[in-house]
Design a protein around this nucleic acid. Structure first.
Lengths: 195, 195
DNA sequence: CGAAAATTTGACATGACTCAACTGGAGTGG
DNA sequence: CCACTCCAGTTGAGTCATGTCAAATTTTCG
């Protein structure tokens, strides 16, 4: 069951884990099943856990003072998700995370995570690359929110993740783009008209 | 001269570097002086270097198709800056970086950086924490751009970094907030009027 | 001091939002 | 297997936050 995690790590670090490394690591993960629409991380409560998405889809979001949800990120098969702020600061979570479908996760606690980083240099190396890539990606998202209008951001998004519209409802795509569902609907209408 | 880097690393990992670790590491950095307004990273050209800001201020930005600049981040004393996309992907840089003041940097090349990560576990650990924090911060910035209007983002910014207005011109603060200088001027006028 | 740059202000434009109504498909139960 | 309901998506009309253009004013600095 943990094969995907192993592949995920080995692919990122470009070298295999030894059997003993993998066994040590594997023992730190626990399997978690989350039903569709169930929330497994809640803003405001401590949540020092990271998750590997084995199968399914997750939705990390904030709720603003008017009660609107805004998508921070999606998580699909092979993604790592969690409230990394709470995870590493030990303060309350700043995001909500819920399953968009019935989802299988592997969870690792903060302490086990740090333990693994200490004991298995390849794991810390992997985590470094993970965060490095995630950071680079989020900077690009910030850059695009500055430079591009909503239509362009939508086009860029479906170019990078063509399957996204099939996996999540349109109002969540809108929320990820930082616009309202009505606006995305109009943008799409316009694109069709002009094509 | 490298004392600040040492302190910076030791503070993040919560333990001292040994003399030999520090000497090994120190040999990989070269000192770079950049004049005010000089650009030392340019979008479109390969730039596989990371910098530690010893003294001064830097400005990482993108230029959109209309020629407008948008601030991705500032770098002050003790910050690490660079085009991490180019650094780690080996592709052309996506950002411009220039000095806002006369600035002293310490530079480390990509190869030396990876070399240091391999040889000095504490260094990889440090880098992991660096990116982990940077990533968490950028997610919060994305969240705030969704949830808050420009006035609220400005208030949050000056609360978190009260010295920012003293160190950078207002039009750059506006650009960091994702608005025009005129809009920030009006926001400030409004705040004064209401206080 | 004087030129250039930054900031402010005014009048107007616009992209995205709001509110509200309508459409259509998916599921549910009689 | 039809009627009902629910919810995502679409559409229309009016509003609002921020942008645009342009000019005036203040600050910076050689």
């Amino acid at each position: 069951m943990l094969d995907h995690i192993r592949e995920n790590i080995e692919a990122k670090i470009g070298q295999p884990l030894t059997t003993s490394e993998f066994e040590l690591l594997g023992a730190l993960f626990t399997s978690v099943h989350v039903q569709k629409k169930a929330q497994f991380v809640t803003e405001g409560s401590l949540h020092r856990t990271m998750y590997f998405v084995e199968r399914g889809a997750t939705h990390t979001y904030v709720i603003d003072k008017r009660g609107e949800r805004h998508t921070i990120q999606f998580g699909f098969d092979g993604y790592w998700v969690g409230d990394i702020y709470s995870m590493f600061s030990g303060k309350p979570a700043i995001f909500h995370i819920e399953a968009l479908e019935s989802t299988e996760l592997f969870a690792i606690s903060h302490d086990d995570f740090e333990h693994a980083c200490k004991l298995i240099p390849k794991y810390e190396h992997f985590v470094r690359i993970l965060f490095q890539n995630a950071y680079a990606g989020s900077l690009q998202r910030i850059a695009s929110s500055f430079s591009d209008d909503a239509e362009q951001r939508y086009l860029t998004l479906i170019e990078k993740q063509p399957d996204l519209p099939q996996r999540v409802p349109q109002y969540l795509v809108a929320s990820y783009l930082g616009i309202k569902p009505q606006s995305l609907s109009r943008i799409r209408k316009n694109l069709v008209k002009r094509s």
